[in-house]
């Protein structure tokens, strides 16, 4: 998957789980700015794990500082 495809998919999943509209996802966005609390965060990650049959470890999650680093991680896991 391209980075753009991953970004769009992530945006759709975020909207589906947070029920909050997002026009576009920018690299500088973080969990707070997209309106996701800790339960949303776990659900978003689980939805991606299920969809792509990947595993995102607790240490991976702890290293996510913003959407840029999250998309980096997803790119690596999905395309591995």
């Amino acid at each position: 998957m391209t980075r753009e495809e991953i970004t769009n998919e992530l945006k759709d999943i975020i909207i589906q789980i947070t029920h909050k509209p997002i026009a576009a996802l920018s690299d500088g966005d973080n969990w707070q700015s997209i309106g996701a609390d800790s339960l949303d965060k776990v659900q978003i990650i689980m939805a991606l794990e299920e969809k792509h049959d990947i595993e995102i470890l607790d240490e991976d999650i702890a290293a996510i500082t913003d959407m840029h680093s999250f998309i980096d991680l997803l790119e690596k896991k999905i395309n591995a």
Binding site: V42, Q43, M46, E49, E50, E55
Partner: peptide
């Protein structure tokens, strides 16, 4: 265990 729904607790 990592696939259980986190919302179930709530």
């Amino acid at each position: 265990p990592n696939r259980v729904n986190p919302l179930v607790v709530s």
